[in-house]
Design a protein around this nucleic acid. Structure first.
Lengths: 251, 251
DNA sequence: AATAAACGTTCTGTTCTATAGAACAATATA
DNA sequence: TATATTGTTCTATAGAACAGAACGTTTATT
């Protein structure tokens, strides 16, 4: 995590990539001033990245290429959970007509592996690869509830409890109570904690030995999800999908 | 393309990433011998990449993280063609029940932006980010047909005409004839050229000024696509979807 | 049309640093 | 218990990254 002997040149390349990602296509001079490097050095880095396909030049501007999507796509494709869960999450979206997601934990953050839109799905700005704090979503809470407590506190120490909406969980006590509730029910609920008016229901996906691999969820506008749905029909569907995934993973 | 003053350290980092992508999770020693570097140097690179979230350590092995998916996802999301075409390609898949795709050209290669599976869709090993030779697919031919001829020959010089199946296009003459046919019809056909028994129909997406932005397609097993479909019903649906995309892009 | 400003790119000497190799601790193997 | 193999720490030196100056081109200004 700390890198005792960091490779400074690599860090500069990464800073450049980050800047191109945040700021979009850019010329050499502007980029150089943005990350505080000389023009020639930036030029050398850019042409090197271009040579290997990570950057391309369009209309006198440099920009990141879809090589990153290729690398990311291959990594995702190689993940067993993704292979198994993908068709199930799509069915779940089709069946409910809403938005269905898979999330995994990586470096203490939640990463969306994919989303599938049913016929009436809301259009959230989630996308494959998006990172989110675990405590802010039903998906994340479903994962946290089944991680070792030591790991949970480690994650809290690292990332804190940033609030998204007034309803968000803001203290550790509150979170641990919520996680207890998740373990009791077997699924997690987010009632407007991440986004006002949005209700989510997430269920963990675990191995036979109890290790948590990720979570799946359905998100829908509160107007379409009654309190009754939230504790009856919907959890049944999500838990059933999670169960099918677990069975297929454990052979 | 050539990088007159390449940053060698960055190239080593990229070689390491490439090796981790091809070979999967790996220890320091093995990785060092794979790419012919000292153990300590590899260790420094890995911890640097880890510090910035591109690599993670699991069970005494280093592996690439989904950070790449995040970067790739953000790049894709920022592309206007993707934003506009995504819902249309999904409808196309739903409507036909088959597999629908978007492809764009990047650095002379075709890159899949997304795929959408209809109810009966075949399960090809394509995925978002996958790169393919342009002359081997209906999607690629739809793009090549509307690129300037100078650019087409440039691409051929760079990437050649590798054959995938006995039916593949193997000479420049053959390709240019095929591209003429595409321009005449307005859509491209792949009848088993990429994969035996698979038929694809691709249509270009162009701006009002005639520039090609990419192509969309439907792929289906030959058993479900009659010769009649291939020149009647199917092109109509694909062309109509392409047209909707074009209208939405040009405002 | 002439001039100036700004750009991307080339090039080199100096400064900084990436790296091999040796040594260490920790774990696995015999 | 001894031996091999791993990941990691550390440092001197070989080597490379980079600032800055200069170049040719393009764009903006007067």
């Amino acid at each position: 995590m700390d890198a005792k002997y960091p490779v400074r040149t690599t860090e500069k390349t990464l800073a450049l990539i980050e800047q191109l990602m945040e700021g979009g296509p850019c010329g050499v001079t502007e980029l150089a001033s943005d990350i505080d490097m000389g023009k020639s050095a930036v030029h050398n880095h850019l042409t090197t990245l271009q040579k290997h396909g990570y950057v391309q030049q369009i209309d006198d501007e440099y920009q990141l290429s879809l090589k990153f999507l290729e690398v990311g796509g291959r990594i995702r494709k190689s993940m067993e959970l993704y292979q198994v869960a993908e068709p199930e999450v799509k069915s779940l979206a089709a069946e409910t007509g809403e938005l269905a997601n898979i999330l995994i934990e990586e470096q203490g953050m939640g990463v969306y592996l994919m989303r599938a839109k049913g016929a009436d799905a809301v259009d959230l700005d989630t996308y494959a690869g998006l990172r989110t704090r675990l405590h802010t979503t039903a998906l994340g809470k479903a994962i946290l509830a089944y991680l070792p407590e030591s790991r949970v506190t480690e994650i809290l120490d690292q990332h804190g409890l940033q609030q998204k909406t007034p309803k968000s969980i803001s203290t550790r006590e509150e979170l641990f109570q919520a996680l207890d509730a998740v373990r009791e029910r077997g699924y997690a609920i987010d009632d407007g904690e991440r986004l006002e008016g949005l209700r989510c229901l997430g269920a963990p996906v675990r191995t036979s030995s109890g290790e948590v691999l990720g979570a799946i969820s359905v998100s829908a506008p509160a107007s379409r999800v009654s309190d009754q749905d939230l504790h009856g029909d919907l959890p049944e569907k999500v838990l059933s999908a999670a169960n099918v995934i677990e069975l297929n993973i454990n052979y």
